[in-house]
Design a protein around this nucleic acid. Structure first.
Lengths: 254, 254
DNA sequence: TACTATATGTGCGTTATCGCACAGAGCGTA
DNA sequence: TACGCTCTGTGCGATAACGCACATATAGTA
């Protein structure tokens, strides 16, 4: 196993709200209303943004961190439902009107996020303009991800699921370097740690990843995509369809 | 195995839009705008309301039928993502703005539904009033169901999943009688037909269900709930929380 | 009443994953 | 440099679910 550098260099000064794709997609007018209320917050690994059933006070827009939505069972076992990175937002339940969800939001990869008091975004949401439609589309992308998680859990091997999971994480990071123990991945996938070890070993043998003690580097992304099940592709293309990057002018639904 | 009556008596005349809980929850004003455009349609077993990626022309509000949203894999295997009955609606993607989804909508239990041209509900939705907020809450309930499906697929036995599935279906039917082959259930759960046969046999031995050739009668619902995993309860209580007006018919009839 | 298609029951070897136990390996700190 | 904690590797029996083959039962129809 190769040696990997262990330090991360994150400079808060270089963060911009527009690093988050949802915030970026908003028109200047809405941005002007919202951005002054954004607060850049650190998102350390393991931080819990909300527990199951807890009402959120803030919504979070990740820039370079990754947050998992996961369900924790009565016996403590867990399963990841979906992943949110710079592509999305934590807290759609506030907008949906439910105020809370049955899942826990957990920082899975450290970094930063902008947060906004729940009331701020709710009042913007209730103006029924661009933000509403953007959020609805994002919700649908999230729904697709959840649906595909269900499918993948049912039908695909740990190896395939690991590939999917790595790809989803990779898409939300700046480089090909994940800070992530196998134990954590196992919790996300809802499988044994040993199962992840074996799958990772096979991926390494095939020259797709290098890893060591909580660090994973993807060395052959193309091959990773080939080894993954169809689930990754389904989620990716549907997300791209619903939320084309850059600027999509959200026309009214009707 | 006991003998069961095989005929169903459905009388279209007795159907009312308000049998659907979402339609029922709307205020008189909105009902007056929408109801004249509703069309009662028959929903035979196996009917496909939309394929993956297909744009819907109508949204459907089931009265006494059950519709499964399921994902069909490239190899043809399938997995149910969520269930919709008199508690919900098929076609939220139209409102979300995505226009289509990656799943197929399939009638899993025959009956009737009211349908509405997509444009009609979209324009009501865009009035940004009551319907919008109701639909958002319903979407969150649906999301909860999907999330729990993912969890259940990962962690629970076929026996437990069958219990959950029977309970979810039961809540959307008028009585304790399901018209449903084991083969169909297997497709929904994404497992082998033989696996369902064995699980059903065990439930019968425990006095929970009777069944024969495509008919299942739940004889001990309380026990079924005890045998089910926590997933059913999570979905049920969250749905009740989000949509308190939606009262399950089993309660009002029994 | 007999036939046929469909639904359900059962056996059996195979596989993936699990649960557990413990051995090594790498990094941080004393 | 040595210790200790965390992370990763490996072995092994147990188990749940699979794929396949085929037997049996039932409803509907000829």
């Amino acid at each position: 196993m190769p040696k990997l550098a262990s330090q991360q260099c994150i400079d808060p000064k270089q963060h911009q709200p527009t690093e988050n794709q949802l915030l970026k997609a908003l028109c200047a007018e809405v941005q002007e209303r919202l951005f002054p209320h954004l607060e850049l917050v650190e998102m350390p690994l393991g931080k819990v943004l909300h527990e199951s059933g807890e009402v959120l006070r803030y919504v979070y827009f990740p820039t370079d961190c990754i947050v998992s939505l996961l369900y924790v069972m009565e016996n403590g076992a867990s399963a990841e439902i979906s992943v949110v990175g710079h592509d999305g937002m934590i807290g759609i339940a506030l907008l949906m009107g439910g105020e809370s969800t049955t899942s826990r939001a957990l920082v899975q990869s450290a970094g930063y996020a902008y947060r906004l008091p729940g009331q701020r975004i709710k009042s913007e949401f209730n103006r029924h303009g661009e933000l509403l439609h953007l959020m609805l589309r994002y919700s649908q992308a999230l729904i697709t991800q959840m649906a595909q998680t269900a499918v993948c859990n049912r039908h695909h091997s740990i190896d395939q699921q690991l590939c999917r999971w790595l790809l989803l994480s990779l898409d939300r990071l700046k480089d090909n370097h994940l800070v992530m123990t196998q134990e954590l991945i196992a919790n996300m996938l809802g499988v044994r740690r040993e199962g992840v070890t074996e799958a990772a070993g096979r991926l390494h043998k095939q020259g797709v990843i290098d890893y060591s003690r909580g660090h994973i580097i993807v060395t052959d992304r193309a091959k990773l995509e080939r080894l993954s099940c169809e689930c990754y592709g389904v989620v990716k293309s549907e997300t791209d369809r619903l939320l084309p990057l850059s600027r999509h002018r959200t026309e009214s639904v009707a």
